[in-house]
Structure formats: C-alpha cells, structure tokens
Design a protein around this nucleic acid. Structure first.
Lengths: 224, 224
DNA sequence: CCCTGGTGTAAGCAGCTGCTTACCAACCTA
DNA sequence: TAGGTTGGTAAGCAGCTGCTTACACCAGGG
C-alpha cells in the first residue's frame, strides 16, 4: 500500500499516508485526519455486521458522516480499506490478550457482544468480520488469511506437539465455526445458550487438543 | 456435466446424456422436465463453489444450457431455487449416513473432495454450500438454518447429557469451521494436512464432548 | 381457420455496485 | 493579489444484479 493517488483538477497527485505514527497535526484546517478514523471506525463496524460484500461504500461513508468520494481518496479502493480494518482490529485484539486466554477471550467477545452499534472504538469484532466476509472471493482472501495466520500463530504456541500448527488451526476453526453458527446463522439452541457455559464446554474440550490453555473458569466440561 | 446443448437453425436442442440411473426416455415431447433437473444440478454445483451471492442466475442458467428466464418460470426466484437445492442435497447426505459416523463422513467428504467438478450427481457438497453461503443475509438464512437443524438433530442423539443440543451445535460448528478454514480460506497448514489425521484429531477430541461416537480410526488423539 | 397452452428466446427494466469526475471552499505562502 | 495545497461535495459513469416482458415456435382440438 504505497499511498493514495488522487486526481485533482490539473493532474495526478499522491496523498501521503501519514496517519500512522507521528501524524502531523494539521493546523488551521478543520478536523482533517479525523475523517480517516471515522471511516475506519464505520468500516470496522459495518464489515463486522454485514461482511465485506454487503457493506457498501455508500453505507460506510454515510455512517461516518462523510462523502463517499473521500473514502476513495483516503484508501484508494474498498478492498484496501478492508485490509486496513482487518489488520488494525486483529492486531489490537492479539496485542491485548495473553495467549493462554485467547480462546476464552475471543469466545466471550463473540458470544456476548457489546450490544450492537453503540460501542466506542473498534472493540475486537475482528473475528466477526473474518467469518462474515469469508466466501467473498479472492478479493479479500488475502486479508482474511493474514488475520487467521496471526491468530493461529499464537495458538500454536500452546501445544508442544509436533503437529501443533494443525492443532492450532483446528482450534481456530472451532472458534470461527461457533461464531458463524451463533452470530451469523443464529442456530438454536446454541444462539441462546449461556456464553459462559459455552465457553466452559469449548475450553474444557480444547484442553484435550492444546496444552498450555488456562483451565475453564468453572468445573471441568468433559463428558463426565 | 448433465447434458450437451447444441444450437440448430431454429433454436436450442438438447442431446441428452442420461448416464445416471433410471433416466426416463423422453418420448414424443421434447425433453421438458429435464430443464428443471439441469437447472438444479447447475445450481447445486455453483452454489457449492461460489456461495449464494456470487452464483448469479445468469451463470446458473448458462451452465445448465438454458435461458435464464426459464429459471424464473420453474422456481420463481433465486432464493426459492437455493432452498430446493439445499433441502435436496442435505437430505441426501443425511439419509445415507449412520449417525455415529456422521462427523467422520462429513469431515472426509469435505477434506478429501471428489476432485472438483467431475462427480456425477450432487454428492454431499451440501455443507460446502452452507458454509459458502453463510453471511449472505436474511434471504437465505432460513434454508441454511433448516439444514443445520437437520444435522444437529442427528448429532444431538449422540450425547446423553441434558445439554446435548448445545453440544451437538458445537460439534456441528466445528465441522463448519474446519470446512471454512480448509476449503474456503485455504488456511495453512490445515489445508494441506492429511485428511485422515485431521479426522482422527477431531473425532478423538469430540469424544470428550459427545458420547456415542465411533472411535477414531487410528490411535487416540488426546494430548497425553 | 383461430384458439389455447406449454416451451424456448432476446431484449429490456429498475436498482444497486465500486469508482471517477468536475467543481467548490477554505487556509497558507509569497 | 495570485498561486498552491488540502478538505469536502454532488453528480455521474459503466457494469452487474435479479427479474419481467413481449414475442416465436409447435402441438392438439373445436
């Protein structure tokens, strides 16, 4: 992502992408950079709620209270915007969670969502975005795969087996599947089951696949 | 490949290729009902390959060698066609598999697919259709939910626990998640792992969640 | 003969998609 | 004052979507 190219009245022009670290405070002008962040926040929410294809650029711009042309000036394309959202949200959740509690945390954030659209910053909807956008085709598979790799790499550290990579992928697949059946499909009785109980069942069962996980909060969840 | 269509001077003509089972010999009238079945077959394949939204009615009609207007005459809408495909394919797999081997069978049919588009009749791509179409929105959630219910009902019979419904949903969620990560996302190393080994890991681990499952074919897959 | 009626077809509809264009309104520097 | 850069906007583009319409064909039957 080398930058954003825009067409002005008299030629092509490259808008540098400096909203990352230092971010020079644009002085004098009305709140400039906030547009980027509002677009990112709106996109994060809509991608999580509807997935890549059903979240249109018009909806994203509208929720951000911004003209849709600005979306393309800042990010170049819808796909690039999606890539930034996925990378940002995924990194945030991974950075804030200790590995041995990752399964539990992801599960709880998926099973007991922060009650719809209110929540302030993009709060860990990354896996929801992933599972709603899967199947959107080659356009977004790169971003989805990268995020999955990040999660799986952390989970792989929880098993000493030589096939720890496959075991980690299987654990991740379970998380994704549970989120899919519960949040997207609304499968009963899973959709209305108590989040803590579901988490206990899953964490307890996964203990037989991955070492190094924190034990489930309640009693053991094996089959006896 | 359910048939070959040739273009003559005054219209389309069907060279029937009835290598299936009974295949009534169309007598007198030109093959009328076969259009329905060709549309169903084409839709089954395309829904499994691309999911609901990315499989367009034009593509379906084209693969069936049929004008797209006929699709609407026969099924009324794309959604109705999807419903028929899902119900038909799903019922077929469930009817042909004993419950205690359902997990293993679904896993193997997903992990070691019958080498792409060749396979004759709609052969158990139903779960692939489900997971590729999830997230398509309310339009198709009914059909997806119904199919999921059928699978979960069978799985629920494998556990004597009073929360057997939730446990069955969790098992189904794992199957869906694995298929998603492997077939749709192509997540490594899971995507290239040996199908039998994956099946052994999953079946072994699920034995701690569901009673009544057939034991894994190889040695136990627990963590000790 | 005309009339149905089931089959197949090309063309078109309104609506939505991602994305582009031309223009406006500030502010800063010279 | 003029020029340049930046932030913002309404309108439009081509392309695709599911779906509909109007018409051609060929049967049987009064």
């Amino acid at each position: 992502m080398p930058g954003v190219v825009c067409r002005t009245d008299r030629g092509w022009q490259v808008v540098a992408r400096e909203a990352d670290a230092g971010a020079v405070p644009s002085q004098g002008t009305p709140p400039a950079r906030s547009t980027r962040e509002r677009l990112l926040a709106a996109a994060s929410g809509l991608f999580a709620e509807r997935g890549y294809e059903r979240a249109t650029v018009r909806d994203i711009a509208s929720r951000a209270g911004v003209n849709q042309a600005l979306l393309f000036r800042h990010f170049g394309s819808k796909r690039a915007l999606f890539g930034e959202v996925v990378a940002r949200d995924g990194a945030e959740q991974l950075r804030n969670t200790p590995p041995e509690r990752l399964v539990e945390t992801v599960l709880m954030s998926m099973l007991a969502p922060p009650t719809a659209d209110g929540g302030g910053a993009g709060s860990s909807r990354s896996l929801e975005t992933l599972l709603r956008s899967v199947g959107a085709g080659d356009e977004v598979s790169a971003a989805v795969t990268a995020l999955g790799d990040d999660y799986a790499r952390v989970l792989a550290g929880l098993s000493g087996a030589d096939d720890s990579g496959v075991r980690a992928d299987l654990a991740l697949a379970w998380l994704v599947g549970i989120g899919l059946m519960r949040v997207v499909v609304g499968k009963q009785p899973l959709a209305d089951a108590d989040a803590r109980e579901v988490s206990r069942l899953v964490v307890g069962t996964l203990g037989h696949l991955l070492d190094g996980m924190a034990p489930p909060p309640g009693r053991d969840a094996g089959h006896d």
